[in-house]
Design a protein around this nucleic acid. Structure first.
Ligand SMILES: [Zn+2]
Length: 268
DNA sequence: AGCAAGACCTGTTAGC
DNA sequence: TGCTAACAGGTCTTGC
């Protein structure tokens, strides 16, 4: 469910509610949702800093860190407004010394919370964050030049650039007129630069719109995003393309449902 | 190297 | 109406 913009919203909210808090309790209701990869205990650890890399949320503690990935249906609720005890999909409840809770709700059980000494092992195969300052247009073009992969698979795999998921990949490729099966290295340089700028623009405006809610996504207060109102290709199969009027089609590419305008998007 | 398919899960919807 | 198959914002692993 959540891609970079949705995770960024969650991270910004967690910074306001969790920084400085000390753990007092941990209840795990679905064992596989929680992985302790350290001998240390969470109780009495204090949250100092909260960061994000791609779709990973990193709670830096006074010793070690807690890394959270929401995968398809994971949700974090601060529990300020509502009580989620007994919720059908409650997998983990974290309590703090000030008695405030953090609930991890996850219908499909794909999400994970890891307690580790160091984030290095989990993040070692995750590429540079798509909206990080370290990723320049030049750097992005250099990555594409080194790959013979289909561009959709390249953007989804997280190894080179992290944070893009199925929605934003389809949106960015459509807006650039690039077919998802195009080989990265074959895309013209001008189009590679356009793709970089489009990714920045689409992801950053989705953050301003508080993320995309198709069905499950909510922020930590339970609010839906607004960005779904601005999607031009994702979930638009059967509708006319906003640019040329052709009927938008859907096919399976890189293992995912992929939305394409058969006229606007060229295969390179 | 790159790709496809299956696994991990539960719930909703489309089609017969 | 009721059953079944397909599908869903994501990784992982395995095997060609
Ligand atoms: Zn079109």
């Amino acid at each position: 469910m959540p891609e970079l913009p949705e995770v960024e919203i969650v991270v910004r909210e967690l910074r306001l509610t969790l920084i400085g808090k000390t753990f007092s309790g941990l209840n795990v209701y679905w064992q596989r949702s929680f992985r302790a990869q350290t001998e240390d205990t969470l109780i009495n650890r204090k949250i100092s800093r909260i960061t994000r890399k791609g779709k990973y949320i990193i709670l830096n503690l006074d010793r070690g860190c807690l890394i959270i990935h929401l995968r398809m249906t994971g949700q974090l609720f601060s529990g300020e407004s509502e009580n989620y005890n007994g919720h059908k999909h409650l997998r983990i409840k974290i309590s703090f010394k000030d008695h405030s809770p953090l609930y991890f709700i996850d219908q499909r059980k794909f999400g994970r919370i890891y307690h580790v000494d160091d984030s290095g092992e989990i993040l070692k195969n995750v590429g540079v964050d798509a909206v990080a300052d370290e990723l320049s247009g030049k750097g992005f073009i250099a990555l594409l030049n080194r790959s013979k992969m289909a561009v959709k698979a390249f953007l989804l795999c997280q190894k080179y650039v992290s944070g893009m998921g199925n929605i934003y990949t389809d949106e960015c490729l459509f807006r650039c007129g690039i077919h998802p099966l195009s080989r990265c290295e074959n895309i013209p340089d001008l189009k590679k630069a356009e793709l970089y700028l489009t990714i920045q623009e689409i992801l950053k405006s989705a953050i301003l719109n508080m993320g995309t809610t198709i069905s499950d996504y909510r922020d930590t207060y339970g609010n839906q995003g607004q960005n779904q109102k601005f999607l031009k290709i994702y979930d638009c199969d059967g509708l006319p393309c906003s640019v040329c009027g052709s009927i938008i089609k859907k096919e399976k590419i890189a293992g995912r449902g992929t939305h394409i305008c058969p006229v606007c998007q060229k295969i390179y």
